[in-house]
Structures are given as structure tokens and as C-alpha cells.
Amino acid sequence: MYLEILLATALAVAGVALAPIYDSLERKIKARLHSRVGPPILQTWYDVLKLLAKELVIPEGGYFTAAVVLTELFLSIALLVSVSFLLFFQSLTMYVLVAVFISALSAATLVKSVTQNNLFSVIGGFREYSVVLSAEPFLILLVLLIGARGVTDLKSLIGLAPVVLTTYVMTARIPFDIAEAEPEIASGIMIELSGPLLAANELSLLTRRYVMAALPAYLFLPWFVANPLLRVGLGLALTLLTWVIFAIVAVLLGRTRAAVMLKGTTVAALALTLLFIIVESVPYG
């Protein structure tokens, strides 16, 4: 029991520290696929630390925006902690908690974008809303389903498909980064942020990406691997693997137009989720 709590906590802490490193790694992978040298492996940490050292500028939208940005950071860390505990504690409450945090985090992002008194941010907010809507309900449904029923059989691994799809969408990578879309709406939801607030925003985005890379593994591992240490090892390894795959996919694609691809995503997520439910409800034999 104590070992598990200790391990889960360590995993969460490691996640916060690793997320920016994985981000640097992603930039490195991207660079390699661009035939560039790319930044050193600690670059994202350097960036964050540099931003933290800058003066604090309260954005248009006032302290409220600043407060929401910080709330978002806390929520993403809370989500990471709860997901880490998922690896060891499979009570339905844990799953519900994860679902709630996922949802709360998205809500915070939306609030953040509309409180900034800036057109681009508001457009970004609406785009974020449509992205979230196309994936989040399914992800939450899947988390709750797995929590309620447990994953009983190898064939349940079919559930990985909708989980990976929805988590990818939730990482706001290309083609789903339309809420920022630097060339279109000038960084959209982040346009008003700078310095320490931008650093906080960056950290929460990266932590969220870490959670989304970890989720597929963390949702399914406990049902197949008994040894807690092995779970931790595999969990870490698979998180990294997922992150790397996501990174490569993001390089291969362009940015979508809000209306076009999201419809497709919704349909795909819906179909895969239904498939999982059907497979799960078919009795043994």
C-alpha cells in the first residue's frame, strides 16, 4: 500500500519533470524530420526558466485570466497525480476522479481563452471548444467504462484504438492545434500571455500532453501486469513510446480547418468507442 502510494507520487513528480524534456525530444525528432540540428534536450526547460525570470505582465482580461492560467496548471498536475494513482488503485472513484479532472482542465482552458479580452483568443477559444467536443466525451466515457467493468481480456485491447485517438486529439498537436494556429490567429488562446504566465501555460500544456501520452498505458497496464515495479517501468517506457509516436504523427500532417476534420474525428471516435463497448459486452466463449 505505502509502496504503491510512494511509487504513484514518484511517477507524478517524474511526469512534471519529464514533460518538458519529452517536449525537447519532440522538438529534436521534428528537427530531424526537417533535416535540422534541433535544440538540446533541456531546451524546453531553459525556455520555461527564462520565461519565469521575465517580468509579470497582467494580460488584457486582468487578474482573472492570470488566476485561470494558474488554476489550469494546478488542475493539470492534479490530473497527472490522479492518473499516476490509476496505475495502482483501480477503484471506480479513482476513474471518476480522473474523468472529472480531464473535464475540469478543458473547462479551465476555455475560460482562460474567453476571459482574455482579445478577438484572436476568443476565436481560439471557440476552436478549442470544438476540438474538445469532438474527443473529450469519448475519452471520459472510455475511462469510466474501463473503471466500471475492468479490462478483462486481451480482446479488450481493442479499446486502445479510441483511447489513443482521443488522447491524441486532446494533446492539441497538429492537425488539432487550431486553437493556437500561429499563422492563422496568432497563437489564439495564448496571445495575451507572456513571461511567467506563459511559462505556467506551457507547463500545464506539457503536463497535459504527458498525461495524454500516459493514459493509454495507464488505463490498460494494471489489468495485465501484476508486479508494481514492472508496471512503473512499463508505464514509463510506454509513455515515452506514445509521446514519440505522437510527435512523429504531428510532423507528418498539416493543420486542419475547424469544421472539416473534427467531424471526421467525432465519427471515428464514436465508431471505435462503440466497437469497444460491443466487444466488451460479448460474453466469453
Partner: peptide, 13 residues
Amino acid sequence: LISIAARAKVVTR
């Protein structure tokens, strides 16, 4: 893209 990048190698300095 992957094969193009592999053949082009790293070109920046």
C-alpha cells in the same frame, strides 16, 4: 517524408 529526411540528413549547422 521520412525517407526524404533520412536521405537529406542534417543540413543545418
